[in-house]
Nucleic acid binder design. Structure first.
Lengths: 173, 173
DNA sequence: GTTGGCATGTAACCGGTTACATGATTTT
DNA sequence: AAAATCATGTAACCGGTTACATGCCAAC
C-alpha cells in the first residue's frame, strides 16, 4: 500500500513523470523516509494504471511513459493521509547493534560505535545538503518534503548525539 | 539474518529460554528496535538448531522446549556485531505522512499531526516505563538494552518535539 | 563504433504478516 | 465445566531485494 501512496505523492509533488523519474525522486527527495527500486516501481505503476489511479499521459522516446495522477488517485492519496494510522513497526539493524553493545568489551564497543557514528553523520550531511524539493519558479504547489526533512534532520542529529555521548561515556570509564 | 541475531542476542541476555519466552522478550525488551511474532520465531529456532547455533537444552511441560546458545552461536553473534555494517534502509509510514502533509489544508494537517503526536507520545511513555532488562540479582551479565533504550528515548523525544513545533507553527500561521 | 546513461521490464528468492490449527495446563 | 493462558506449529500471501534481460539514444 505505502509504495502506491509514495508514488501518488511524488506524482502530485512533481507533476507527470516516468517510472524512471520516480525512481530518481525516491533516491533524492524521499530517500530518508521510503525507498524503492525500479523493479518494484514499474510493475506497481502498471497495476495502478489498471486500477485507475494513474494514466499514461504520453509516451516519449526510448519507450518512456509519462504517468499522471488521476482524480481517483488523488482521492485515495488524501484518504490514506487523513485516515490511515501509521503502523508503529520499526526494524533497525543499528538499534539492534546498540542493544547488543554490552556484549563487547570496551575497545570493540568503541570501534562499533565509531562506525555507527560515521554512518549517521554522513547521512545527516546528506540530508543537510538536501534542499526541500520545489521546481524552479513553482510557487503554486506546496513545499513538499519540508516537514519530513525537518523531522529527518532532528532524528539524525539526536542519533549522532547519542553516539557521541555513548562514546564519551565508554572512553571515560 | 537479523532475526537470528536478535534471537541469539536475547538468548545471551536472558539465558536459556523457550520460543514462547523469546516471543515475549521481543515484545518487552527489544520491541523498539526489532519485532517478530511466534510464527516467525519457531521455524527460525528449528533452522538454527539444524545449523548448530542453538540446542534444545531441555523439554518441559506442554511441549515446551528450552533453547540455549552454543559456542558457535555466540561466535556468529559476535562476528555480526563487529563486522556487519547495518543497512541504512528506512521505511517509515509516519515519515511518509510528514512528507505529504503539505497536501492538506491547515485544519486537516493539524488533525493528522495531533494523531501523530499522540502515537509517538504513548510510545515514548511506554519506553520510559521500560527499565533496562536485567534478571533480579544478576550482576554477572552486562546491562543489555541500556544503550538501545537510551537511543530509543532520544529518538522518540525528538520526534514528539518535532510534532509539537510543527503544530505550533501551523497554529501560529 | 563503443561506452555510458536512459528506460522498461521479468523471475527467483527471502523475510515478514495473517490466519489457521492443535493440544496441554491452570484458573475461575 | 468453561475460559484463559501456555506452547508449538503450518500455510497462504505480500512486499521487497537481487539478478537477469533487453533495447534505445547521445556523446566521445
Amino acid at each position: 500500500m505505502s509504495l502506491r501512496i509514495a508514488l501518488l505523492g511524488l506524482l502530485t509533488a512533481s507533476g507527470p513523470a516516468s517510472g524512471y523519474d520516480l525512481a530518481k525522486y525516491f533516491e533524492t527527495s524521499l530517500n530518508h523516509v521510503w525507498q524503492a527500486g525500479h523493479s518494484q516501481i514499474y510493475p506497481e505503476l502498471n497495476k495502478m494504471t489498471a486500477d485507475g489511479l494513474v494514466t499514461v499521459e504520453a509516451e516519449g522516446a526510448r519507450g518512456r511513459k509519462i504517468y499522471a495522477i488521476t482524480p481517483e488517485g488523488s482521492a485515495q492519496l488524501r484518504t490514506w493521509l487523513v485516515e490511515h494510522a501509521p503502523s508503529g513497526t520499526v526494524r533497525s539493524e543499528s538499534g539492534l547493534q546498540a542493544f547488543l553493545l554490552p556484549l563487547l568489551d570496551k575497545a570493540e564497543a568503541i570501534l562499533v560505535l565509531e562506525r555507527f557514528r560515521a554512518q549517521y553523520a554522513s547521512r545527516l550531511k546528506q540530508l543537510e545538503s538536501l534542499a526541500p524539493h520545489r521546481p524552479a519558479g513553482d510557487t503554486a504547489r506546496p513545499d513538499f518534503g519540508k516537514y519530513a526533512l525537518d523531522l529527518g534532520l532532528r532524528q539524525m542529529r539526536s542519533t549522532v548525539q547519542w553516539a557521541d555521548d555513548t562514546l564519551a561515556e565508554l572512553r571515560g570509564d
